[in-house]
């Protein structure tokens, strides 16, 4: 019973995610696209819960839905890019080719999946063990022990990204970055 419930839930969420994804790329209005993106992210977060990854689901909502989509919305507002649908010529050979390629990719992936070629070493993080310590603690422990270095590097990456965004967003008064100010005056 629980299985059918979960499968039903999956199908519903998957439908929401796909529709929202299509909404992102086919909306004329960029604000609508951003909102569709939000729906897509939330649906995915719920799917994560379905996959027993509650911590990641929370992070997904916080980072993507909370930060990134809001950022997109800010920029949309700033540039006023809500307007007509800006799309390249639709019915041309390129589109046809892309659709065909997409189908090929889908077929390849699907075939591979259904033939069960995806396998690997089974780890120790079974749901039972995770249940003993709790999902957040399990991920946190892994993050701060085995993956400490990538974690720290990620923080450096974020810092660099932040600096980059600040530098790029700064308004240079007629000067180009790197030139002495005296010369620019």
């Amino acid at each position: 019973m629980a299985q059918q419930l979960q499968q039903g839930l999956f199908l519903a969420l998957a439908g929401v995610a796909v529709v929202a994804a299509l909404g992102v790329i086919f909306n004329r209005n960029a604000v609508h696209s951003a909102l569709s993106l939000l729906a897509n992210f939330v649906a995915l977060a719920m799917l994560y819960v379905l996959l027993n990854a509650q911590f990641i689901a929370i992070v997904q909502v916080a980072v993507y839905a909370g930060a990134i989509v809001v950022l997109f919305l800010f920029v949309v507002m700033l540039l006023g890019a809500g307007g007509e649908m800006q799309m390249g010529g639709w019915l041309n050979w390129r589109t046809a080719f892309i659709v065909a390629a997409a189908l090929v990719l889908l077929t390849l992936t699907g075939t591979a999946v259904f033939e069960g070629t995806i396998n690997g070493a089974i780890g120790t993080a079974t749901p039972e063990q995770i249940a003993q310590v709790g999902q957040t603690e399990a991920v946190g422990t892994a993050l701060f022990t085995d993956y400490l270095l990538p974690f720290e590097l990620a923080s450096v990456l974020l810092l660099v990204g932040m600096l980059g965004a600040v530098v790029l967003g700064q308004r240079w008064r007629g000067a180009i970055a790197g030139r002495p100010s005296g010369e620019a005056e």
């Binding site: 390249g88 390129r94 892309i98 390629a101 990719l105 390849l108 992936t109 075939t111 591979a112 070629t117």
Partner: peptide, 20 residues
Amino acid sequence: IRHYALAMFLGVIVVVAYFF
């Protein structure tokens, strides 16, 4: 940029196809 993205995409397909 879209042409570059297309090239990348085709590359992905080739790599995936190779692995499978």
